[in-house]
Design a protein around this nucleic acid. Structure first.
Lengths: 122, 122
DNA sequence: AGAATACTTAAGTACGTGCTTAACAATTCA
DNA sequence: TGAATTGTTAAGCACGTACTTAAGTATTCT
């Protein structure tokens, strides 16, 4: 009960999971500048190539990165739509939370008290 | 090398890590409606109370949730600033990636080729 | 005081994650 | 063709995560 949005939920799982690692985020930051090969992505890190490849698999599995192999080099690029997907989820939550806080605030300020139906006018 | 933004980096780690679990996201969604006690948060789930408490600790550790114990009940509320923090990081990446793609697109379309400085005008 | 409520702590277990090295495969270059 | 480049696969290891049950503590109600 409560878990009806199962597909989008699994997607959010894998996207946020992918984002929860500094190496993977650094790879994403790099890919914002444009596509790159695997070894090009690996170069800045003190990590074995297979390690980087595993991170790339996580990123690709989440949909944050798309890759295509041409000849012997695999070209990796960022997928803005997936970034927007996660961003959108956060935006929706933040908006909902802030909207509630705004209502509360304007109720407490009350220069123009909006029909005090719940307070006793003793 | 490359890891200079260590504090914000650790924060992003824990925030995205916290978001990477469906139970924790469901708790966040609930908290958008307003503060709630621990057992109130636990009610919809088929999970032991300690399980939920552990999720709440992860959420609080990331800064996504703030809690305060009054008497014997702990009141939990969402922290919109932290949601905005994660949202902002994603927004910055998406913007950078999209800006690049837009430049590329308008270069390929080229009804009005923008000072072809890199192409040979043979 | 005694019982109910609302957590909290501790300990254990199964499974997931982030790395590593070693060995292999596929392309391209000389 | 043989050598260098670029990536892939497999196996293993240390540590982290998501739960559980059992037993506690602190508050509040009667």
């Amino acid at each position: 009960m409560l878990n009806n949005s199962s597909t989008a939920d699994a997607d959010l799982d894998s996207v946020f999971q992918a984002l929860a690692d500094p190496t993977r985020r650094a790879i994403l930051v790099r890919l914002c500048e444009g596509p790159a090969s695997v070894s090009e992505l690996a170069r800045p890190f003190a990590m074995s190539l297979p390690g980087i490849v595993q991170h790339l698999q996580v990123l690709e599995g989440s949909g944050l990165v798309r890759t295509e192999k041409i000849g012997r080099v695999r070209s990796c690029s960022i997928e803005p739509a997936t970034v927007r997907f996660a961003e959108g989820w956060l935006g929706a939550r933040r908006t909902a939370a802030e909207r509630r806080l705004d209502r509360l605030e304007s109720f407490l300020d009350s220069d123009d008290p909006p029909t005090n139906s719940t307070r006793s006018t003793s």
